[in-house]
């Protein structure tokens, strides 16, 4: 996993609530058996004027000029600031993959759907919860100033605005540790393999009916 320590980048607004995972990456792109190649189809139904299908030459497709990320001023944006309940809906990790592969490193919103929130951390994409009023202020500022950049400092757990305001955010020590070091969980968990084996043996003895072994 890509490390996340500090990131300075152009911010883009997504001024709506309940942005769902079907909007982030529509279902037709979930047929892929690969982990990459989703960035060009991020927000596909909003971003393009035609209906997207896998395998299309996306560079040749008509862009929706009204979609916020298609505006020249947000080209290269790497921090998305959005309304509440971002990422609601399905568990598809293709959603954070698409955001990350498009170029986003952090998403700021007043709240996130639980599964999406969790999935972000597995991909070096930092979801940041800030208070609703603060997010509103950020979205207005981003719209008001072309080239509005934010600095996300994971070590300090702050988002710094151009006028040097530092907005604090929470993150669990475990997640912070993984992101700062670029660790993925499997390697870390396997360090506890003995504990897992011991737990499993005890559970198997106590509840053998959970360990049906008719392997097909």
């Amino acid at each position: 996993m890509e490390k996340f320590v500090q990131h300075k980048g152009l911010a883009a607004p997504m001024d709506r609530e309940n942005v769902d995972t079907d909007a982030i990456i529509p279902k037709q792109f979930l047929k892929s058996i690969h982990r990459t190649g989703f960035g060009e189809n991020l927000f596909d139904a909003w971003r393009y004027l035609d209906t997207g299908e896998p395998g299309m030459d996306n560079a040749a497709r008509p862009l929706n000029p009204d979609f916020v990320l298609n505006q020249a001023r947000y080209r290269g944006a790497s921090i998305l600031v959005a309304g509440k309940n971002f990422g609601c809906g399905s568990s598809r990790e293709h959603a954070p993959w698409a955001l990350q592969q498009y170029g986003f490193r952090a998403i700021i919103a007043p709240s996130f759907a639980d599964i999406f929130f969790n999935n972000c951390y597995k991909n070096g994409l930092l979801p940041i919860v800030l208070e609703a009023g603060t997010v509103r202020r950020l979205i207005d500022a981003i719209k008001g100033f072309v080239g509005y950049e934010l600095v996300v400092d994971l070590e300090a757990q702050t988002v710094r605005t151009p006028d040097a305001e530092a907005l604090a955010f929470d993150i669990t020590p475990h997640r912070k540790y993984c992101l700062l070091n670029g660790f993925d969980d499997i390697g870390l968990t396997l360090r506890s393999a003995d504990k897992i084996r011991a737990f499993e043996a005890e559970r198997r003895a106590r509840h053998p009916y959970y360990f049906n072994s008719r392997v097909a």
Binding site: E93, D114, I115, L190, S192, A193, I196
Partner: peptide, 23 residues
């Protein structure tokens, strides 16, 4: 019972565990 992302699917396959925090 709850949904998980693909990284967690791989994690459960490899370790029989999830890294989780109580809701």
């Amino acid at each position: 019972a709850h949904g998980i992302g693909t990284s967690e699917v791989e994690h459960v396959m490899a370790t029989q565990c999830l890294v989780a925090k109580k809701m």
